[in-house]
Design a protein around this nucleic acid. Structure first.
Lengths: 174, 174
DNA sequence: ATGGACATGTAAAAAGTTACATGATTGA
DNA sequence: TCAATCATGTAACTTTTTACATGTCCAT
Protein backbone atom coordinates (compact mmCIF):
# COMPACT_ATOMS: atom_id res chain seq x y z
CA UNK A 1 0.00 0.00 0.00
CA UNK A 2 2.99 2.34 0.10
CA UNK A 3 3.53 2.72 -3.63
CA UNK A 4 -0.18 3.32 -3.90
CA UNK A 5 -0.03 6.31 -1.60
CA UNK A 6 3.19 7.55 -3.13
CA UNK A 7 1.44 7.78 -6.51
CA UNK A 8 -1.50 9.47 -4.88
CA UNK A 9 0.93 11.96 -3.38
CA UNK A 10 2.44 12.74 -6.77
CA UNK A 11 -0.99 13.13 -8.33
CA UNK A 12 -2.05 15.45 -5.52
CA UNK A 13 0.27 18.06 -7.06
CA UNK A 14 -0.93 17.81 -10.65
CA UNK A 15 -2.41 15.32 -13.12
CA UNK A 16 0.08 13.05 -14.87
CA UNK A 17 0.36 9.96 -17.04
CA UNK A 18 1.97 6.71 -15.91
CA UNK A 19 5.01 7.66 -17.90
CA UNK A 20 5.20 11.10 -16.28
CA UNK A 21 4.88 9.54 -12.86
CA UNK A 22 7.61 7.06 -13.67
CA UNK A 23 9.97 9.91 -14.54
CA UNK A 24 9.02 11.97 -11.50
CA UNK A 25 9.50 8.88 -9.39
CA UNK A 26 13.00 8.31 -10.73
CA UNK A 27 14.02 11.88 -10.05
CA UNK A 28 12.65 12.13 -6.52
CA UNK A 29 10.92 9.34 -4.63
CA UNK A 30 13.22 6.60 -5.92
CA UNK A 31 15.97 7.92 -3.62
CA UNK A 32 13.95 6.62 -0.70
CA UNK A 33 11.55 4.13 -2.27
CA UNK A 34 12.25 1.84 -5.22
CA UNK A 35 9.57 0.72 -7.64
CA UNK A 36 9.66 -0.86 -11.06
CA UNK A 37 7.60 0.41 -14.01
CA UNK A 38 5.48 -2.70 -14.02
CA UNK A 39 4.58 -2.18 -10.37
CA UNK A 40 3.71 1.42 -11.05
CA UNK A 41 1.41 0.76 -14.00
CA UNK A 42 -0.32 -2.04 -12.13
CA UNK A 43 -0.85 0.20 -9.13
CA UNK A 44 -2.36 2.95 -11.28
CA UNK A 45 -4.97 0.53 -12.53
CA UNK A 46 -5.67 -0.52 -8.98
CA UNK A 47 -6.02 3.09 -7.90
CA UNK A 48 -8.43 3.79 -10.74
CA UNK A 49 -10.47 0.66 -9.89
CA UNK A 50 -10.70 1.90 -6.32
CA UNK A 51 -11.93 5.30 -7.49
CA UNK A 52 -9.01 7.15 -5.90
CA UNK A 53 -7.88 8.46 -9.27
CA UNK A 54 -9.67 8.90 -12.60
CA UNK A 55 -8.23 8.53 -16.09
CA UNK A 56 -8.89 10.83 -19.04
CA UNK A 57 -9.65 9.00 -22.30
CA UNK A 58 -6.37 7.82 -23.90
CA UNK A 59 -4.59 10.40 -26.08
CA UNK A 60 -1.72 9.97 -28.56
CA UNK A 61 0.37 6.80 -28.07
CA UNK A 62 -2.29 5.55 -25.69
CA UNK A 63 -1.24 8.10 -23.08
CA UNK A 64 -3.67 8.30 -20.19
CA UNK A 65 -3.73 11.32 -17.94
CA UNK A 66 -4.65 10.49 -14.38
CA UNK A 67 -6.24 12.87 -11.90
CA UNK A 68 -6.66 12.41 -8.19
CA UNK A 69 -10.30 12.33 -7.05
CA UNK A 70 -11.77 13.77 -3.87
CA UNK A 71 -11.78 10.25 -2.42
CA UNK A 72 -8.12 9.99 -3.38
CA UNK A 73 -7.22 13.19 -1.54
CA UNK A 74 -9.07 12.01 1.53
CA UNK A 75 -7.33 8.65 1.41
CA UNK A 76 -3.94 10.34 1.11
CA UNK A 77 -4.61 12.52 4.13
CA UNK A 78 -5.96 9.58 6.07
CA UNK A 79 -2.82 7.58 5.30
CA UNK A 80 -0.55 10.42 6.37
CA UNK A 81 -2.36 11.32 9.54
CA UNK A 82 -3.93 8.10 10.79
CA UNK A 83 -1.42 5.40 9.97
CA UNK A 84 2.20 4.96 11.02
CA UNK A 85 5.04 4.17 8.65
CA UNK A 86 6.47 0.65 8.75
CA UNK A 87 9.99 0.52 10.10
CA UNK A 88 11.48 -2.57 8.53
CA UNK A 89 15.18 -2.17 7.85
CA UNK A 90 16.86 -4.23 5.15
CA UNK A 91 20.41 -3.22 4.46
CA UNK A 92 22.30 -6.01 2.78
CA UNK A 93 25.57 -4.07 2.57
CA UNK A 94 25.51 -3.58 6.33
CA UNK A 95 24.42 -7.14 7.04
CA UNK A 96 27.53 -8.37 5.28
CA UNK A 97 29.72 -6.50 7.73
CA UNK A 98 28.70 -9.00 10.43
CA UNK A 99 30.35 -11.73 8.39
CA UNK A 100 33.51 -10.02 7.25
CA UNK A 101 35.60 -12.02 9.75
CA UNK A 102 35.04 -15.02 7.47
CA UNK A 103 37.21 -13.45 4.76
CA UNK A 104 41.03 -13.45 4.64
CA UNK A 105 43.01 -10.50 6.03
CA UNK A 106 42.63 -7.38 3.97
CA UNK A 107 39.33 -8.29 2.36
CA UNK A 108 37.25 -6.71 5.12
CA UNK A 109 39.21 -3.50 4.82
CA UNK A 110 38.76 -3.56 1.07
CA UNK A 111 35.02 -4.01 1.48
CA UNK A 112 34.73 -1.14 3.93
CA UNK A 113 36.85 1.18 1.80
CA UNK A 114 34.57 0.32 -1.09
CA UNK A 115 31.60 1.33 1.05
CA UNK A 116 33.30 4.62 1.86
CA UNK A 117 34.03 5.32 -1.79
CA UNK A 118 30.51 4.46 -2.78
CA UNK A 119 29.02 6.71 -0.12
CA UNK A 120 31.28 9.58 -1.17
CA UNK A 121 30.29 9.15 -4.80
CA UNK A 122 26.64 9.08 -3.80
CA UNK A 123 27.12 12.24 -1.76
CA UNK A 124 28.60 13.91 -4.83
CA UNK A 125 25.64 12.75 -6.93
CA UNK A 126 23.25 14.29 -4.44
CA UNK A 127 25.16 17.57 -4.42
CA UNK A 128 24.97 17.73 -8.19
CA UNK A 129 21.29 16.89 -8.07
CA UNK A 130 20.70 19.67 -5.57
CA UNK A 131 22.51 22.16 -7.79
CA UNK A 132 20.74 21.04 -10.95
CA UNK A 133 17.18 21.36 -9.69
CA UNK A 134 15.35 24.63 -10.09
CA UNK A 135 13.64 24.61 -6.77
CA UNK A 136 10.35 26.39 -6.51
CA UNK A 137 8.25 27.16 -3.46
CA UNK A 138 5.72 24.38 -4.05
CA UNK A 139 5.12 22.06 -1.15
CA UNK A 140 6.65 19.18 -3.00
CA UNK A 141 9.87 21.08 -3.62
CA UNK A 142 10.09 22.43 -0.09
CA UNK A 143 9.79 18.98 1.42
CA UNK A 144 11.80 17.39 -1.37
CA UNK A 145 14.66 19.61 -0.32
CA UNK A 146 14.29 18.43 3.26
CA UNK A 147 14.48 14.82 2.09
CA UNK A 148 17.55 15.65 0.02
CA UNK A 149 19.19 17.19 3.06
CA UNK A 150 18.59 13.90 4.83
CA UNK A 151 20.40 12.11 2.01
CA UNK A 152 23.33 14.50 2.19
CA UNK A 153 23.73 14.19 5.94
CA UNK A 154 23.30 10.45 6.09
CA UNK A 155 25.60 9.77 3.14
CA UNK A 156 28.30 11.87 4.78
CA UNK A 157 27.86 10.03 8.08
CA UNK A 158 27.94 6.70 6.30
CA UNK A 159 31.16 7.59 4.47
CA UNK A 160 32.83 8.69 7.70
CA UNK A 161 31.73 5.55 9.46
CA UNK A 162 33.08 3.35 6.66
CA UNK A 163 36.48 5.10 6.75
CA UNK A 164 36.59 4.69 10.51
CA UNK A 165 35.54 1.04 10.24
CA UNK A 166 38.16 0.29 7.60
CA UNK A 167 40.81 1.67 9.95
CA UNK A 168 39.71 -0.85 12.63
CA UNK A 169 40.31 -3.87 10.41
CA UNK A 170 43.54 -5.76 9.68
CA UNK A 171 45.48 -4.82 6.54
CA UNK A 172 46.39 -7.41 3.96
CA UNK A 173 49.39 -9.56 4.88
CA UNK A 174 52.23 -9.20 2.36
CA UNK B 1 19.01 -15.37 -0.95
CA UNK B 2 20.10 -12.91 1.70
CA UNK B 3 18.49 -14.59 4.69
CA UNK B 4 20.01 -17.82 3.48
CA UNK B 5 23.51 -16.40 3.66
CA UNK B 6 22.81 -14.63 6.92
CA UNK B 7 21.96 -17.97 8.52
CA UNK B 8 25.05 -19.51 6.98
CA UNK B 9 27.06 -16.68 8.53
CA UNK B 10 25.63 -17.34 11.99
CA UNK B 11 26.29 -21.06 11.66
CA UNK B 12 29.86 -20.37 10.55
CA UNK B 13 30.55 -19.35 14.17
CA UNK B 14 29.06 -22.36 15.88
CA UNK B 15 26.30 -24.97 15.47
CA UNK B 16 22.83 -23.90 16.55
CA UNK B 17 19.15 -24.85 16.39
CA UNK B 18 16.52 -22.85 14.56
CA UNK B 19 15.42 -21.47 17.87
CA UNK B 20 18.96 -20.44 18.81
CA UNK B 21 19.36 -18.75 15.45
CA UNK B 22 16.10 -16.93 15.88
CA UNK B 23 17.29 -15.51 19.20
CA UNK B 24 20.72 -14.60 17.83
CA UNK B 25 19.01 -12.98 14.89
CA UNK B 26 16.84 -10.85 17.12
CA UNK B 27 19.77 -9.66 19.16
CA UNK B 28 22.06 -8.79 16.28
CA UNK B 29 21.18 -9.12 12.60
CA UNK B 30 17.60 -7.93 13.01
CA UNK B 31 18.91 -4.38 13.49
CA UNK B 32 19.85 -4.37 9.81
CA UNK B 33 17.79 -7.22 8.36
CA UNK B 34 14.31 -8.32 9.40
CA UNK B 35 13.07 -11.87 9.15
CA UNK B 36 10.12 -13.74 10.60
CA UNK B 37 10.42 -17.10 12.36
CA UNK B 38 8.52 -18.83 9.58
CA UNK B 39 10.96 -17.51 7.00
CA UNK B 40 13.87 -18.64 9.11
CA UNK B 41 12.66 -22.18 9.66
CA UNK B 42 11.76 -22.54 5.98
CA UNK B 43 15.18 -21.29 4.96
CA UNK B 44 16.92 -23.77 7.26
CA UNK B 45 15.16 -26.61 5.53
CA UNK B 46 16.17 -25.18 2.17
CA UNK B 47 19.76 -24.88 3.31
CA UNK B 48 19.77 -28.49 4.51
CA UNK B 49 18.23 -29.67 1.23
CA UNK B 50 20.99 -27.85 -0.63
CA UNK B 51 23.64 -29.57 1.52
CA UNK B 52 24.99 -26.27 2.85
CA UNK B 53 24.15 -27.25 6.42
CA UNK B 54 23.50 -30.60 8.09
CA UNK B 55 21.10 -31.38 10.92
CA UNK B 56 21.83 -33.60 13.92
CA UNK B 57 19.02 -36.04 14.77
CA UNK B 58 16.29 -34.23 16.75
CA UNK B 59 16.85 -34.03 20.52
CA UNK B 60 14.44 -33.08 23.35
CA UNK B 61 11.40 -31.05 22.19
CA UNK B 62 12.32 -31.90 18.61
CA UNK B 63 15.29 -29.58 18.74
CA UNK B 64 17.57 -29.95 15.73
CA UNK B 65 21.14 -28.74 15.89
CA UNK B 66 22.39 -27.50 12.55
CA UNK B 67 26.04 -27.43 11.46
CA UNK B 68 27.54 -25.66 8.47
CA UNK B 69 29.14 -28.03 5.94
CA UNK B 70 32.28 -27.45 3.91
CA UNK B 71 30.06 -26.60 0.93
CA UNK B 72 28.25 -24.13 3.15
CA UNK B 73 31.47 -22.39 4.14
CA UNK B 74 32.52 -22.15 0.53
CA UNK B 75 29.15 -20.74 -0.47
CA UNK B 76 29.35 -18.13 2.29
CA UNK B 77 32.80 -17.02 1.15
CA UNK B 78 31.70 -16.98 -2.46
CA UNK B 79 28.71 -14.83 -1.61
CA UNK B 80 30.83 -12.36 0.35
CA UNK B 81 33.64 -12.09 -2.14
CA UNK B 82 32.06 -12.64 -5.54
CA UNK B 83 28.66 -11.00 -5.34
CA UNK B 84 27.66 -7.42 -4.58
CA UNK B 85 25.01 -6.41 -2.09
CA UNK B 86 21.72 -5.10 -3.47
CA UNK B 87 21.17 -1.42 -2.78
CA UNK B 88 17.41 -1.06 -2.78
CA UNK B 89 16.26 1.61 -0.34
CA UNK B 90 12.76 1.51 1.13
CA UNK B 91 12.18 4.03 3.85
CA UNK B 92 8.49 4.68 4.30
CA UNK B 93 8.99 7.24 7.06
CA UNK B 94 11.18 9.31 4.78
CA UNK B 95 8.92 8.86 1.78
CA UNK B 96 6.12 10.43 3.74
CA UNK B 97 8.13 13.60 4.16
CA UNK B 98 7.66 14.30 0.45
CA UNK B 99 3.92 14.56 1.06
CA UNK B 100 3.83 16.50 4.29
CA UNK B 101 2.71 19.65 2.45
CA UNK B 102 -0.67 17.94 2.03
CA UNK B 103 -1.33 18.19 5.78
CA UNK B 104 -2.56 21.27 7.66
CA UNK B 105 -0.07 23.63 9.31
CA UNK B 106 1.63 22.13 12.29
CA UNK B 107 1.14 18.52 11.31
CA UNK B 108 4.39 18.34 9.36
CA UNK B 109 6.31 19.73 12.30
CA UNK B 110 4.64 17.27 14.58
CA UNK B 111 5.60 14.41 12.29
CA UNK B 112 9.24 15.51 12.12
CA UNK B 113 9.48 16.03 15.87
CA UNK B 114 8.11 12.54 16.25
CA UNK B 115 10.87 11.28 13.98
CA UNK B 116 13.44 13.09 16.08
CA UNK B 117 12.07 11.63 19.30
CA UNK B 118 11.96 8.17 17.81
CA UNK B 119 15.54 8.43 16.58
CA UNK B 120 16.73 9.65 19.99
CA UNK B 121 14.96 6.79 21.72
CA UNK B 122 16.48 4.33 19.27
CA UNK B 123 19.91 5.83 19.91
CA UNK B 124 19.40 5.30 23.62
CA UNK B 125 18.35 1.69 22.99
CA UNK B 126 21.54 1.11 21.04
CA UNK B 127 23.66 2.65 23.78
CA UNK B 128 22.06 0.37 26.34
CA UNK B 129 22.57 -2.58 24.05
CA UNK B 130 26.22 -1.69 23.65
CA UNK B 131 26.67 -1.48 27.40
CA UNK B 132 24.80 -4.70 28.08
CA UNK B 133 26.77 -6.93 25.74
CA UNK B 134 29.84 -8.71 27.00
CA UNK B 135 31.93 -8.24 23.92
CA UNK B 136 34.56 -10.84 23.21
CA UNK B 137 37.29 -10.84 20.60
CA UNK B 138 35.51 -13.23 18.25
CA UNK B 139 35.16 -12.07 14.67
CA UNK B 140 31.42 -11.81 15.02
CA UNK B 141 31.69 -9.53 18.02
CA UNK B 142 34.42 -7.39 16.49
CA UNK B 143 32.36 -6.73 13.39
CA UNK B 144 29.11 -6.63 15.31
CA UNK B 145 30.55 -3.72 17.22
CA UNK B 146 31.36 -1.99 13.96
CA UNK B 147 27.78 -2.44 12.80
CA UNK B 148 26.53 -1.09 16.12
CA UNK B 149 28.74 1.96 15.71
CA UNK B 150 27.03 2.51 12.36
CA UNK B 151 23.68 2.43 14.09
CA UNK B 152 24.82 4.91 16.73
CA UNK B 153 26.22 7.37 14.22
CA UNK B 154 23.34 7.16 11.79
CA UNK B 155 20.65 7.40 14.47
CA UNK B 156 22.34 10.52 15.83
CA UNK B 157 22.53 12.05 12.35
CA UNK B 158 18.91 11.15 11.72
CA UNK B 159 17.78 12.75 14.98
CA UNK B 160 19.71 15.93 14.21
CA UNK B 161 18.28 16.07 10.72
CA UNK B 162 14.74 15.65 12.02
CA UNK B 163 15.19 18.48 14.54
CA UNK B 164 16.58 20.70 11.81
CA UNK B 165 13.76 19.74 9.45
CA UNK B 166 11.07 20.42 12.07
CA UNK B 167 12.50 23.91 12.50
CA UNK B 168 12.02 24.53 8.74
CA UNK B 169 8.31 23.82 8.81
CA UNK B 170 5.39 26.07 9.77
CA UNK B 171 4.10 25.90 13.33
CA UNK B 172 0.47 25.21 14.09
CA UNK B 173 -1.87 28.20 13.65
CA UNK B 174 -3.68 29.10 16.83
C1' DA C 1 13.70 6.16 -42.72
C1' DT C 2 14.98 5.31 -38.44
C1' DG C 3 16.67 5.61 -33.74
C1' DG C 4 15.35 7.17 -29.44
C1' DA C 5 12.14 8.45 -26.35
C1' DC C 6 7.27 7.85 -25.44
C1' DA C 7 3.79 4.78 -23.56
C1' DT C 8 1.51 0.71 -21.31
C1' DG C 9 1.36 -3.41 -19.98
C1' DT C 10 1.46 -9.23 -18.94
C1' DA C 11 3.21 -13.52 -16.87
C1' DA C 12 5.86 -16.20 -13.91
C1' DA C 13 8.76 -16.67 -10.16
C1' DA C 14 10.78 -15.29 -5.82
C1' DA C 15 10.49 -13.25 -1.44
C1' DG C 16 8.14 -11.67 2.45
C1' DT C 17 4.01 -11.25 5.67
C1' DT C 18 0.37 -12.82 8.58
C1' DA C 19 -2.13 -15.92 11.00
C1' DC C 20 -2.50 -20.10 12.71
C1' DA C 21 -1.22 -25.01 14.48
C1' DT C 22 1.08 -28.09 17.59
C1' DG C 23 3.29 -29.93 21.21
C1' DA C 24 7.27 -30.59 24.98
C1' DT C 25 9.87 -29.21 29.05
C1' DT C 26 11.17 -26.63 32.94
C1' DG C 27 11.04 -23.87 37.01
C1' DA C 28 8.30 -21.54 40.53
C1' DT D 1 0.11 -27.66 38.22
C1' DC D 2 0.54 -24.27 35.19
C1' DA D 3 2.70 -20.37 32.95
C1' DA D 4 6.63 -19.30 30.40
C1' DT D 5 9.68 -20.59 27.24
C1' DC D 6 11.38 -23.91 24.18
C1' DA D 7 10.76 -25.70 19.54
C1' DT D 8 9.17 -26.28 14.67
C1' DG D 9 6.47 -25.60 11.33
C1' DT D 10 2.09 -24.93 7.38
C1' DA D 11 -1.10 -22.27 4.47
C1' DA D 12 -2.83 -18.40 2.33
C1' DC D 13 -1.90 -14.12 0.83
C1' DT D 14 0.57 -9.97 -0.67
C1' DT D 15 4.41 -7.75 -2.57
C1' DT D 16 8.37 -7.43 -5.37
C1' DT D 17 11.39 -8.83 -9.08
C1' DT D 18 12.54 -10.17 -13.65
C1' DA D 19 11.87 -10.75 -18.19
C1' DC D 20 9.38 -10.04 -21.88
C1' DA D 21 5.67 -7.97 -25.28
C1' DT D 22 3.85 -4.36 -28.08
C1' DG D 23 3.29 -0.50 -30.50
C1' DT D 24 3.58 5.01 -31.42
C1' DC D 25 5.40 9.44 -32.42
C1' DC D 26 8.96 12.88 -33.27
C1' DA D 27 13.27 14.92 -34.67
C1' DT D 28 17.08 14.57 -37.67
Amino acid sequence: MVLRHALLGLLAQRPASGYDLRKQFERSLSFVWQATPSQLYAELNGLADAGLISADPPGPRGRKLYRITQDGREELTRWLSETSPARGVRDEALLRVFFLWVLPDGAAQEYLRGEAARASAYLETLRELEASIEWDDSGFDRYGRIVLEHGLRLAAAHAEWAEWAAAQTPAEQI
